[in-house]
Design a protein around this nucleic acid. Structure first.
Lengths: 265, 265
DNA sequence: CTATTTTGAGTCTTTAAGACTCTATTTTGT
DNA sequence: ACAAAATAGAGTCTTAAAGACTCAAAATAG
């Protein structure tokens, strides 16, 4: 990222009055577009892959898909694939389509992580993938489309110890890193919980993501300040030892709320 | 982003012992790769574009390039373009190559912002672009490669009022938004300054990016805490009214340093 | 030589997180 | 029925770091 160079002199150019006058080429745009064919050029493969997280029994899970095609045939990898230039209107739609194909639903939270592209990451040639991560409640997750053996939830720790297709392991690591950052200054992880949840469940989820415990007083103070959750008025019906906790649901503004200060790390 | 659905039952699948046993297809991987030709498929255009920022006279500038080809012939747009599948080893190299072609140097800071892809953003067809933003000292910026009229530094505010090629205006806005966030919790903007600089210059830069003034006591306290700048031992030679300010240079660790707490906004 | 400007340090206040305490509520064991 | 244990959730003191304001030192302009 660092690499400093110097040049001798600095010049400063003034913008011309208009940016549309006098086309610099003889060919008209219409003629150019009519004769343009993407297959005349060496292009790169472009795919969209998603890291779908959820939480179950206090553990973070991710969805893996067994590949039915070369390369990496029969390896486990991320849900995703090529852009369907007919059906996908944009990248987000492409990510959601692949996720819906595997889970049956469109997850309530989807965020772009980064793009990774290189000459060597795919044996078929220069390849770029746009990585998203998504969150959804575990109860919402299964599929009646793919056969049982093709799709599975796996604890993230376990997934990261497997040999996955392509560079999907690094992509999971990057998505997890992003989710960790979000857990430090937002309540985004809430989208991995079901419709209604308790504050303790939410705190436990943050703790699992961060890999460390949080002061519950701090956590609850922040939630009150953020004002992005609302009480349902009900208490949890799950039988447990202590006092019955209140149930909350998330307001629409939760996805964008950002605390000014991170939790300690 | 919100859209919740439900399914009746949740199932949980256990991972199989190995992920490589018994290929599911008759064709070998070698045969598949030998017969694979990207041009047999409908692919999408993929480009890499960068928003290059610098600071001059207390104003934020960005580098624009005049397009020599259709579409958007003669419009101003971002430096960037197609991936050269022969020469570019990865996305970062591609971004740096296009920037070096226009400026003569590889900028000292480069960071990926996001990717934008849709059916409609390019009249030639489904197109995806990976947006980076880069920072460099203004004095380092000019070109001996492009003719004078092809490349120019322009105040960002002015660039955002122009009609630019493709969706490059939104890309500049996104890059600027990212830079603003960085200015709130890091010292990344320092890479828009020359090799040595004063703390006041750095503070003024942050103020320009944020569009508001900063308490200089807070700013200096943070810099001391971060420990990512070092005094050169010299004082600024620029003649000015008051006390001569100390010169600083950036340590290598500056790009990754992150404050726990944002400046107020 | 004095007024003015800028750098840069000193210090009080404010905000929000960490750490710890305490109480109410619920289940479990006897 | 009652004691013990566990959990939810509020109260409060401490601590860290930013905001706000003050002030001294160093430089220039007149």
């Amino acid at each position: 990222m660092i690499g400093i160079g110097f040049i001798n002199a600095a010049r400063y150019y003034v913008v011309s009055e208009t940016n549309k006058s006098q086309p610099m080429s003889q060919q008209t745009e219409q003629a150019y577009l009519a004769s343009y064919n993407i297959k005349d050029y060496d292009t790169c493969l472009t795919t969209v892959d998603s890291v779908l997280f959820t939480v179950l029994n206090g553990e973070l899970y991710t969805l893996l898909v067994r590949r039915a095609n070369h390369p990496y045939l029969a390896y486990w990898g991320l849900p995703g694939g090529f852009i369907d230039v007919q059906r996908d209107v944009d990248l987000t739609a492409c990510a959601n389509r692949h996720l819906a194909e595997k889970t049956g639903i469109i997850p309530p939270y989807l965020e772009q992580v980064c793009s990774t592209g290189s000459k060597t990451r795919d044996p078929r040639g220069w390849s770029t993938t746009v990585t998203y991560y998504a969150l959804m409640a575990h109860i919402q997750c299964t599929t009646d489309i793919d056969s049982v053996d093709d799709v599975q939830w796996l604890p993230v720790t376990q997934a990261l110890q497997m040999e996955l297709a392509f560079d999907h392991k690094q992509m999971i690591e990057q998505a997890l890193e992003r989710l960790k950052q979000k857990a430090l200054y937002s309540l985004v992880p809430v989208y991995a919980l079901p419709e209604t949840f308790t504050l303790s469940e939410l705190q436990q989820l943050h703790e699992v993501i961060l890999g460390k415990s949080i002061q519950s007083k701090s956590f609850r103070r922040r939630i009150e300040l953020a004002n992005v959750l609302e009480e349902t008025g009900e208490l949890s019906t799950q039988k447990g030892k202590g006092k019955r906790p209140a149930l909350y649901r998330v307001k629409a503004s939760a996805a964008d709320y950002r605390f000014m200060r991170n939790l300690e790390y």
